[in-house]
Amino acid sequence: MIEIRGLGMYFGKFQALSNVSLSVEAGEKVVICGPSGSGKSTLIRCINRLEEHSSGQLFVDGVEIGEETRNIRNVRMEIGMVFQQFNLFPHLTVLDNLTVGPVRVRKMSRRDAERRARKYLQRVHIPEQADKYPSQLSGGQQQRVAIARSLCMEPKIMLFDEPTSALDPEMINEVLDVMVELASTGMTMICVTHEMGFARKVADKMVFMEEGEIIETAPPEEFFNHPRSKRCQMFLDKVLEH
């Protein structure tokens, strides 16, 4: 589903990614962790080309992503993305946040789009909030709306960039529960998160990054119980302490 080969990425002179390779099968759940500034966000933002890589190759569902990609929008339609800061559209109601993509990008009729939006609001357990504005919702509810907004495009892949780190502790679980449920539907997911309980539960593959490189890739039991690199061990000790 996603094939990354030797990816390199620069912000000006600063190298944010170097020689990153990763492959993700359809239906696979990958959790990426690593210290702040290690390039986790940059990596997943390259996948839907919110950032442009400078070397290496990146394929999504068989389509190479790069300067020559004819229609990046067709690729983005298939990739949902959930941000740390939710990034809901504050001038639109929850329902309109969910329908803008299907109506404008997928060219669905309003009615079908609304039916679909209500279905996914149900899926994230807030069907009653459809007519509110984002600012009237709690953080956890906003993030669930953001997840529903991505799901409304019925993507093949979902990217999560620290979806719970802007939330108050008591709201983290309501979002993680929705993500676990989503995982059980067979969605292909790449999550950047430090929620190791979630990772243990859903991950098929753990990825540890540091200074723009993938240091370790392993199945969760192996990753948590016998991390190969010392760096990874130290990082896990720090994260699991909390």
Binding site: L50, R76, V100, S150
Partner: peptide
Amino acid sequence: LGQWEAARAVGLSTPQCYRYI
């Protein structure tokens, strides 16, 4: 900036980003 990113991630074109977001 997050508004741009969210709009583009949903698949809106640049003119649509301006028009609707």
